[in-house]
Every structure is written in structure tokens, then in C-alpha cells.
Design a protein around this nucleic acid. Sequence first.
DNA 1: GTCTTGAATTTTGTATACAATATGCCATAA
DNA 2: TTATGGCATATTGTATACAAAATTCAAGAC
Lengths: 221, 221
Amino acid sequence: MDGSTLPIARLTLPEAAAERLRTLIIEGVLPPGAKLNERELCERLGVSRTPLREAFRMLAGDGLLVQLPNRGAQVVVLSRDDVRHAFELMAALEGLAGELAVQRVTDEDLAYLRGLQADMEAAHARHDLPTYYAINRTIHDRLNAIAANPILTHAFRTLNARLHALRFRSNLNVAKWNQAVAEHRDMIAALAARDGAALRDLLIRHLRAKQQTALEALEAD
Amino acid sequence: MDGSTLPIARLTLPEAAAERLRTLIIEGVLPPGAKLNERELCERLGVSRTPLREAFRMLAGDGLLVQLPNRGAQVVVLSRDDVRHAFELMAALEGLAGELAVQRVTDEDLAYLRGLQADMEAAHARHDLPTYYAINRTIHDRLNAIAANPILTHAFRTLNARLHALRFRSNLNVAKWNQAVAEHRDMIAALAARDGAALRDLLIRHLRAKQQTALEALEAD
DNA sequence: GTCTTGAATTTTGTATACAATATGCCATAA
DNA sequence: TTATGGCATATTGTATACAAAATTCAAGAC
């Protein structure tokens, strides 16, 4: 037997329910502030209350739900300040990921990232926003993978899920989009130069622009 | 009615159970790797399985427990790498807290922190380690409060709880203790000078020393 | 002696029943 | 009209019962 464990993905019912709820929240089917009636959700998900309630606890831990004693769960509503705070933290996490990635990045990693960057620029050129976002996410995930800190990656993913629930992504204007693509180019250059401080600064500035976009979208409501 | 809500703290059973378990884990009564038998714990805590299992989900979200499908929960065992990763993240979080605190710190905050620092040095002078740690924690909590980012504070607390379960704190030697006290003095000076970059560097270096201590303690087992 | 094999037992997973709390509605009084 | 009290309903909180899976351990095969 080799070292790698390959556990068969037998999702337990609470986990499956949590997963399903997570997407429902992120896709906006369950919008911010929505009250989650247990009995009703049980029917929709085809599970009983016990596993559903465990799913609630998991999602509450991720900050996607708030639970009020005797008053049930509801989808979290992010205030302007919450968004600001989340992005402040996200910037620090990305900055750390950058610093760590610089210490560990290989030439293969760089080649792969440059490929992604090219794909992203192509998507940008043909104004294909969904593909752009998909690749963009892949690049940031890849950076985290190179940083090789699972605890950081977990924190990153959790925070990302919370912000995704905001659904601010359609709000990107052309000028900001151009800038974001350019910043990505600089980021890969800094990574190639193994310049941790520069990469960190770029990532933090990059996140600040993203925060701006998110806050403007929030304002629009 | 003024803006502050003052909700009466009616802990629900799962929350109370989680709180109790958390302290049992951090105090080492439930050591790393311990299997948590549901029926047995139900009797010890005086609750039924349903709220206990919700408590498990909460603690698993905090990273204090791992749950294996059909095989129950056990107290997390931190590997050497886990500790390294946790401290890397912790350093980034503290660094961010420092940068934010610099932007918001008031003279009253500084006066309060200087008072704590004096108390801490007194505890250090009389070799009172428990008091030293209590004050040390208060200072770091205070810094987080000044940073005024609840999401950061939450991440900080969660990560701290995980590391506390390691119980490495009795492992501090005299040289390191002296250095830590001196670093704290420098930190307050940087905060007073509103020098965010300096404070960040100090906090990160401070954490690196702490990480060193933790790893040595881990080695000793 | 070691390795299977397969009940018996234990433990976890899920559903449901009952209890406690909150919510909504309507009657009544100021 | 507006506020208050109290009942009916709905919803959440907790315990327990049953189902499914894992673990244990002894008997037999090699």
C-alpha cells in the first residue's frame, strides 16, 4: 500500500445537506436575510431535521448562517463594515499566500500560471466574464496551493465563500477589468522574480480594488 | 432605546456543551487523539446525543475536532507542519491587527496598554508565569480590539484556541522570556509612534519566536 | 502460528415524538 | 384607533427509538 489514502467520498447526510445549502446561498436562491424554516427545508432536501440541524451548525461556523436561539437560522446579511473587514482580512491572507508561494514556487508552477494567464487574457479580450472569473479563481487557488499551507487555504476558502454570497461579480467595469488583468501580469512577474514583498504589495492592492467593486455593488442595492 | 442591544445570554444546550468540551480539550482533559464516545460523553455532560452532536459540528468547524464518517469524533492531533502552518497564519493575522491598530489607536488605548505592560513586567520580575501569560493574552486581545475588525478577531480567537490545545506554554525559558518582554516594549513604542510597518514586523518576529517555543515543546513529547 | 471469516456487540447515523418557546391573531379595554 | 392580554398555531429544542455501519473476537482454514 502506498502512502496516499484515497477515502471513498461517502458524504454523510449532514455534509451533503450543508453542501447543497452552501450552493443555494452562494447562488442567491437563499438570499441574505432569508429565514430557514427547518420543516420546509427538510422537505426540499429530502432529509430529516437532525442532519439538517447539523448542517446548520456547520454553515454557521463558516459564517454563512446566523442562528438565533429558539428563532431558527437565517442567511447572514453582510453590512458595509462586514465587507470591509472581510476584505481587509482577505488581503492579509492573499499577501501571506504570496510571500509563502515565492519561497516554494517551481519553474513548472510558473509555466502553468503563465498558461492560465494567457487563457485569462484571451477571455478578457473576447469579453467573456464568466470564463475570466473561473480562470481568475483558478489562479488564486493555484497560488494558495503553491503556498502549501492548508490552514491558510481553509481560511481563504471560507472567507471567499462568505464574500461570494454577495454576488458582486457582475459589477466589474471595463477600466477595472483592464487594470485587474494588468495586475495579474505583474503578480506573475513578481513571483518569477521571487520578490515576496512586491508580490505581497500587488496582492494587497489587487484586493483593495476588488473591495472597492464589492462596496459599490453593495451601495447599488 | 439606544443602539446597543443587550441580549440575555440564554445558552442553548449544544452551545453549552460545545463550550464545556472546548475547555476540556484546551485543559488537556481530552488530550489530542482522544476518541469521543457519544454515549459516554452524553452521560458526563448530562445531555442527549442530539445536542452533543451539534456541539461536535461546531468544534469541528473550529478545528478542535475531526469527525470521521461512521467512526465518530476525536480531538485533533496537530502535526509539526500543522503547528508551523498555524503560526504562519497567526503571524499574518497579528501583523494585520498591528497595522489596523496603528490607524485607530487613541492616547487612552496607549495609556491602558502601558499599564498592562507595567503589570506584565512586574509579573516577569517575580517569575510569575501564569500572571504573565494572562496579561500577555490581554494585551494581544486589546490590540485586536483596537484594530476593530470582528472578522479578524474571530479568526484570531479560533486559531488561538487550536494552538492553546497544544499546551506548550510552560516551555518558556528565561532567555526567551526576557526577549518577549523586551519585544512587547518595542511594540508599544511602535504603536505610540503610529508606525504600522514597524509594529507589523515586530509582531511577526514575536510570533516566530513563539512558534519556535511551540515546536520545541512538540519535539519534547 | 497467522490469516480469514462471520456472527455478536458496540457505535454512529437518521427519523420521529414530545417539550418548550415564539409567533400571530383576535377580543377587549383605554 | 391603539395597546394589551391571552389563546391557538407554528417552530424550534431535546430525547429517544430504530437503522446502518464498524469493531471485536472467537472459530476454523491454511
